[in-house]
Structures are given as structure tokens and as C-alpha cells.
Design a protein around this nucleic acid. Sequence first.
DNA 1: CAAGCACTTTACGTTAACGTAAAGCTCGTC
DNA 2: GACGAGCTTTACGTTAACGTAAAGTGCTTG
Lengths: 149, 149
Amino acid sequence: MTQPTTPANEANQEALPRQHRHYTIGELARMFEVTPRTIRFYEQEGLLAPRREGQKRIYREKDRVRLKLTLRGKRLGFSLAEIREVVMMYDAMPDGNARQLWRLLEILADKRANLERQLEDIRLMRMELDDVDNRAREVLRSLGQGQEG
Amino acid sequence: MTQPTTPANEANQEALPRQHRHYTIGELARMFEVTPRTIRFYEQEGLLAPRREGQKRIYREKDRVRLKLTLRGKRLGFSLAEIREVVMMYDAMPDGNARQLWRLLEILADKRANLERQLEDIRLMRMELDDVDNRAREVLRSLGQGQEG
DNA sequence: CAAGCACTTTACGTTAACGTAAAGCTCGTC
DNA sequence: GACGAGCTTTACGTTAACGTAAAGTGCTTG
């Protein structure tokens, strides 16, 4: 897979104490089942901007949410560059000029169109999988009551 | 994007004459808006196996369908290796042994789980996009009736 | 027959998204 | 004070999925 095929349902975060308002890189990494390297890389790519305490990175709620959105975007096949594009425009929104805002709307419409196509792809892919699944089960059944093979 | 962000809705194929039963690499490439290089690469990766007529590749309906499925898989973020895995097991199905078939069912279940998560991701992502969209429009409105800038 | 077009093979290049290794700080604890 | 755990930076390595360039083949069209 280009994106994570196996687990990581961004689940643990809801279960953990939400009180302490900030996280170390290791905590975040465990939460989302990524490596610290990944998180540092996202920072380098302009997707995160944690505070520093001494030399250590301190992540707050905002950062956690961003990471969550980033990973979700990745699972949907968006590149980090695309994700950054939206995220940065979102940040610059309150004082962005009209041109920027229209551009943002354009991008959003684009992403949305993409999502719709993915929905259709999923629908079709499901049918294909069902089909293969059924055939496989049928062959298995025939193997069961016929000779083994 | 990792997968094509813009057009290529695998649309043209339905519109074109379906009669002539085989295609050149260039025809296929235009149909699906990919390059011949891509198609040759997929062959090299074991996803396609066109006939040869002299030294030229001849693609038939089966190959066209495979390419279609492959590209759909790609849009959903599957790697070529994963796609090949399913495709090859599908081909080996009729005379596959039970162990292989069970393995195939496992893989299928895995893919399906993946699709379900993507559905949820899409739902959430849609809501985020709606949110950003609304905010942007609101700012634009306030710009319209207040000062520009 | 030269030109052009579509195809072929071979092979090196490129990009994204990290992995991995090396070397060093900083803290608590045994 | 030696140690390990967890953090840091720097930098080179890796993989997937093609892109691109070079050089050749085969047809058909002016």
C-alpha cells in the first residue's frame, strides 16, 4: 500500500487522558502508530509546528488534531503537499484576501470531487470483491464434497 | 497526489467501439489517460500479459478490464503488489488448492475492511471540507459588505 | 526512398515519504 | 558516575511507480 494497509484506526486517542494538553513526540507516535521520524518529517514539510521546551518538541491539542487530519488525508491518498496546501490556507484564512479565499474554495471543490469518485470506486471495488469472494467459496464447497485438490 | 487528482474517470472506454476486440498499447493508453510506459510497467510487474503479434503487444478485452481494475485499485491507494496478489490468485482460482483459496478469502476480507475505513474517512473528510468551506464563504461575505483587504 | 509515426528495448533518472544509522544532550536512578 | 530511556540533529539509504532519453524496427505515405 501507499497508505497503511493494516490497523491504526486513530482509536487510542479518544481513550487516553485528554487533560494534559500537551504531548511528547513519542506519545503522539504511539497514539497514531507512526514513528517519531514520521512526525519530525511532517514538521519539516510544514505540516506541524510544535513549541520547543529547551530542545524538546512539545505538541498541543492543535498539533494532535493536525496530525490526525494529515494521516486521514494520507489514507485517502492525498500527498503531503496537498494536505499542506489546505492546512496552510486554513490557517491564513481569517486575514486572507479574497483571491486566496476563492482559491481555497476551488481546492476544496477539487478535493470533494475526488472523494466522490473514490466513493464510486469503493462501490465498484466492493462488487468485484464480492464476486471473487463468492467464486472462491463456491470452489471451496465443490472441493469439500468432491475430491480434495 | 499519489493517485491522479484531476480527471481520468475511465469514461471514454464505454463510448468507443467495443467491437474490435483488441487494442494497441497506444489506444489503451489514450483510453485510460496513462502513458504507454505505465502499461509496459504494469506488464513487467505481472499485472498484464498481452499477446504478441510480431514484436508488438496486442491487448484484448481481458487485458483492458485488468487495466481498468488496476487503475481503480490505484485510485483507492492499493499498491501494484497488492493488486497483483489478488489478480493472480483470481486467475489461479479454478484449480487452486484449498489453502490458497482460504488465503484469498483472507486477503479479500482485508481489502474490504480497508474500504470500510476509507468510507468512514471520506465521511469525516467531507465534514471537514464543509466546515472550511463555510468559514471561507463567511469571511468572503464579510469582506464583501465591510472593507476590502 | 525518405520521412514520419507508432511501436520496441535498455537503461539511467526522479520524486515522495519515510527508514536507518551515527553521534550527542539530559534526565532520573541504581 | 555509569547507565538506560527518550529526546535531538545530520545525513545517507531505500522503495514504488513511473519519466525520459537513446537507439532500433516496421509500415505507409508523399
